[in-house]
Write a protein that binds this DNA or RNA. Structure first.
Lengths: 126, 126, 126, 126
DNA sequence: GTGGTCTAGACCACA
DNA sequence: GTGGTCTAGACCACG
């Protein structure tokens, strides 16, 4: 049943992250219906209240929309999804750069290391 | 009392990571004495056995050397420290790339995003 | 309850030696399951944590592999077992030669004594 | 102050072994005076009664002789020393062979391994 | 059930 | 004082 949850961040937050990634990877597309709160609770092994909170957060961010009596859907507003994509990219990059700096690496080392890493992996694309 | 520990990775492991980063940042230099097991236990708020395990792991990796009755010291073998630096850099880069790919980003997006991020931060150097 | 432990070397280490010898003697073969940590603790009369440490060391050496929730098994990688055999043989020989030299015996005396000892024991094979 | 004592064998016995080895290595020769009980007790960091027992055992074996009012001396009876030498050699060899057999090695492997070990060490004689 | 981690508190050898 | 080992007993994640 997918990955388990981490104790360091709130579960509702991790669940939201997971859904966001599914959207980014196009596993969930604009307009797709999300599982119901109860179903998602069972799938994820968490309390329905937790799922409810996750959906609320996602709705607050404009990523999903709830239609009374029908369920929760990925927004059809593509620009929001584009923003989401940009925001997550920036977060990831930002924490990468911060971590590297915390370890004493210069930006030059990061860029050079990244290029080498990618070049080395180019042969065996997964 | 320094940062707290995360529940997702073993404490002894996180403590080792922390020390490794201190070494990378030259806060701990070759030959420097680490706090005694008991002292580090108090500083970190963990059990002395846990610190002991951390120090053992670091010793197994060659990063640290213990002198009986005297304490634990950062190895004077600079080449090991250089290797450590390279290994941690590669690990960090590797997990960054994997995470980004998992989120559906291409290598081009990563590189471009990174460059932009760095350029944007160049003005207000912290 | 098998043999008792010696006070001169750590128990976890002696237990590892014992298991290594069982593997060399083919009492434990590649792929065989070792007793669970708790069971081995009872059999050996030591604390489960001590057994855990023994198993960890063996795993670090590649001699044993753990499958979560299933148990600890002798590695199927035969070449590691061959290496183990060679390493232990060399260690045993090395300490024998060193001890003999420390007692003032020449290599000629060692070889000759060994040959005689073996020839004398050849008649009454145990 | 030399090596420490092991908890697995009685201290008086280990002390006797040590003295025997000194005799084998000619550090103590026939007729030499051993340190007084009190002095040896201090040198070795053990109780004088323990040293006394060691000397008694050595005397029972004919290896040393006590002269009232003068001290304890290595026997002048060379044949006893030769016997000692032979006995210790045989003990060492015997336990080596038993250990190797316990680990599943054949006598052929022992001999071949020993020869190779010695040949490899011939270049850099200590 | 399995192995893995952590704490508390003890004892040891070494210097 | 230092690090190293051991025990007792607890809790966890995984299957």
């Amino acid at each position: 049943m997918g990955e388990e949850f981490n104790a360091s961040k709130p579960i509702y937050f991790q669940l939201a992250e997971r859904i966001n990634r599914q959207i980014l990877r196009k596993e969930l597309q604009a307009g797709d219906k999300l599982p119901s709160v109860r179903e998602m609770a069972i799938q994820s092994g968490v309390n329905p209240n937790t799922v409810q909170r996750t959906y609320s957060e996602l709705e607050r961010m404009g990523i999903v929309e709830t239609k009374r009596g029908q369920g929760t859907f990925v927004t059809e507003n593509e620009s929001i999804l584009v923003e989401l994509r940009e925001r997550l990219k920036e977060e990831q990059i930002s924490s990468f750069v911060d971590d590297m700096k915390e370890m004493g690496f210069t930006v030059e080392e990061m860029m050079k290391g990244l290029e080498e890493h990618i070049r080395a992996r180019e042969g065996n694309k997964a």
